[in-house]
Every structure is written in C-alpha cells, then in structure tokens.
Design a binder for these strands. Structure first.
Ligand SMILES: [Zn+2]
Ligand SMILES: [Zn+2]
Ligand SMILES: [Zn+2]
Ligand SMILES: [Zn+2]
Lengths: 165, 165
DNA sequence: TTCGGTTTTGTTACTCTATACCATGATGCC
DNA sequence: GGCATCATGGTATAGAGTAACAAAACCGAA
C-alpha cells in the first residue's frame, strides 16, 4: 500500500515530495528563529499547504485546504500569512498566475526567476547568472532604481514536450 | 488656454502626449492592415484609451472610460478587445499589476521588458540586450522550451527618486 | 504578576479582476 | 442569396484581494 504522501494535482516528477515539505518547514523554522520572526501555527500551516506541490497555488486554494483541516478561516487569514511568508522570502508570488509557490532557498534573499510549465503547471525556480544584476544595471543607466524584479518564463518542461509530441 | 490634451493621472513627463496616442493609432492601423487583422472601432477605441497615459491601465478603468463616451459596454467587450490587441502585440499586459499598457514598437514581435515606477505609476518598455535570448538559452539547457517571457522591474524612476529625496 | 503596548488573528463586508455562456449582428466568400 | 466565420451584446458568475474594526495572544517591563 502506497504511503500517504500527497502529490501535485498533476503529478509529474517521481521524487518523494514529502521530503520537500518537511525540509521546507525545517528551513523556515530555522530562518525565522534566526531572524526573530514568528512562524506561528497559521503561518506554518499555510507554508505547508503551499508546498503541497511544485505548482503555484492560489490563495483561495490554500483557503480551501485550510478549511478541510476544520480550521475556520477567511481570506484575510490566508493573505496575511502569505504576506508574512513573502516578507521572509519563504514563498514567492507568481505574478502571471496570481499564485504562490514555496522558495527552495529561503536562507538568502534573492530575486526569483521562474520557469512555468503550461502543461503540468509546475514552477521551477532557477538562477540565471548575472541576469538580476544586468537588469539592475541597465535600469540604473536610465536613472531607474530597481527594488524588486519579476522574471517568469512560460513554456513547456521537457517532460510535457515529450508527452505533447 | 491649454489644449485638450489628456494627461496621465499622475502626470510626470512634459512631452506632448497627444502625439504618443496618434502615433500609436497610426502604427496600429498600419500593422493591422499589413496583417489582415481587423482593427474595428471598438478595438481602436480601447487601444486609444489604454494609451491615454504611460501608466498601465486596468480593464475596468478602460471600461469606465468607454462608458463615458456613451458606449454601453460590459467587461467582455473590453477583455475581448484587449485580447485582440495583445495578440497583435499592440498592448502588453503588466502581470504584476493586472493592467495593460500600449506597446511603443508593435511592428515587431518581442518579449516585453518593463520598468515600473512605484511613485508615478509609469511603465517604460525597455530592451535589455541579450536578456531574452539568455533566458531562452538557460531554459533550453534545462530542457525547457520558452514560449513567452515576463520581465518586470519595480522601483523608482529618476524623477520620483528626486521627489522622494 | 499584573499592566499596557505590540503583534497576530477573527469576522464581515466589499471591491476589483476575469471568464463562461448564449444570443445577436456584421463581414465576406461562393 | 446562402453560408461560414468573425465580432459584439448582455447576463451571470467565478476568482482574487482588501478595508475596517474587534478580539485575542504575546511579551517585556513595572
Ligand atoms: Zn518536491
Ligand atoms: Zn510540464
Ligand atoms: Zn506619451
Ligand atoms: Zn516615477
């Protein structure tokens, strides 16, 4: 009998995703402890729910999942938790989907860059060397001071290309 | 007495913006003619309204402006026009604002890159040399086929930096 | 330990953004 | 004219996000 490991709605990669979740939570607790930020039960739970897949999840989907726990939550509950998690760099917002996804490397603040698959829905955070810096410096040439960046590439992951082929 | 030229809600640059609008419309008509795309009255009007400022404008703001003309429009009217205009590359969607802005160079399809000022709201479309290509090639290394990109930098334009200083 | 300020959560109601669906009208080709 | 295709009208509803205020939990100091 298979374990109770939860999977993405459109599962794709075969890794043991339970590890991703527990690892993410552990790291979140570590960074919050170090920073003196309060990872309350609600916030921890929302983070866990966001991490249930590698596909970005909408705030209202998080809300539903919360309610299935028996919690009596309303939209502000979720949005406030997400706001905190974003401030701490524990989740990123995917602008082109109005959705949220866990950050695999929260210890160090960074400009997020994503590959977003239109087939399976997964979001893969990447780092393109020098890209963030290039944006900042080009903006500076135009007198513009960059405070935050959004870099999202939409397309098909290798697996979805094969399926569609 | 000043001309009837309309300005941005938070006007900023002193150029004669009426030129921007008429130029944009002229170029839109040209590209549509060449492509056999039908720039109908509605679509032309929506494009005009989007161009009323250099700040991205929400679909519902366009809707309001349309109605002030006496037109009896509903949301789908606006969204359909915007969809057409985006297909033709005449407007771009600013994902981080759920809003739309006219493209200053619609003749040639391209991945849009924007500087978005949090002070005045203006969006400046830029082209960072090699950036789009770099994203595509790094994605390709990971087996990911990029179909579209979103690059948005948020911060303060030079003018707003001075004001805030 | 009790007080009082700060932070977090609860609750309600609402605004803004976007799309599904079906009907109607225009356009242009044969 | 007949017919397919494209564009619009119009209603209803789904989805995303926030304002505002009240209650509760937390925490450091008196
Ligand atoms: Zn995983
Ligand atoms: Zn995929
Ligand atoms: Zn202008
Ligand atoms: Zn500005």
């Amino acid at each position: 009998m298979p374990p109770t490991t939860k999977r993405s709605a459109r599962p794709h990669s075969d890794h043991d995703h339970a590890n991703c979740v527990t690892d993410a939570i552990a790291r979140a607790e570590a960074v919050c402890a170090e920073r003196g930020a309060r990872l309350t039960e609600n916030r921890r739970r929302v983070l866990e729910l966001v991490w249930q897949s590698h596909a970005p999840v909408g705030a209202y989907e998080v809300l539903e999942r919360l309610r299935k726990d028996g919690t009596h939550a309303a939209p502000p509950t979720v949005y406030r938790a997400l706001e905190f998690l974003m401030e701490q760099g524990l989740v990123h917002r995917i602008e082109s989907r109005n959705a949220f996804v866990g950050c695999p490397q929260p210890e160090q603040r960074h400009a997020a860059q994503y590959l977003l698959c239109e087939g399976c829905g997964d979001a893969v955070e990447i780092e393109i060397g020098g890209l963030a810096r290039k944006i900042v410096s080009r903006a500076a040439e135009l007198g513009f001071a960059v405070a935050a960046q959004t870099v999202e590439a939409h397309g098909l992951c290798s697996r979805c290309q094969q399926i569609g082929a």
